[in-house]
């Protein structure tokens, strides 16, 4: 069994903070979105839609391969 590709990436090793900073930011956006719609209507709803829809945008962008290159 060959382990192709290890050599060129071996140098890169991320810390816990580097791995989790984006997921943490996403979770924070999720939380803001879930809470704001509960607190009020109008502008609050808009903030909620924007922050929660961001999750969907990130999924689509990542799947289409933003980090492919």
């Amino acid at each position: 069994m060959s382990i192709n590709g290890t050599t060129k990436r071996k140098t890169l090793s991320q810390s816990g903070w580097q791995i989790f900073r984006w997921p943490l930011l996403m979770a924070l956006a999720n939380t803001v979105g879930l809470v704001t719609a509960l607190v009020g209507d109008g502008l609050y709803d808009l903030i909620s839609w924007a922050t929660l829809a961001l999750t969907l945008v990130v999924i689509v962008a990542a799947w289409r391969g933003w980090s492919a290159r």
Binding site: P23, M26, A27, L28, A29, N30, T31, L34, L52, T55, V58, I59, A62, W63
Partner: peptide, 11 residues
């Protein structure tokens, strides 16, 4: 990727 991005909502 999908799992980690939706983590907050899923929790």
């Amino acid at each position: 990727m999908v799992g980690i991005v939706t983590l907050g909502w899923v929790m």
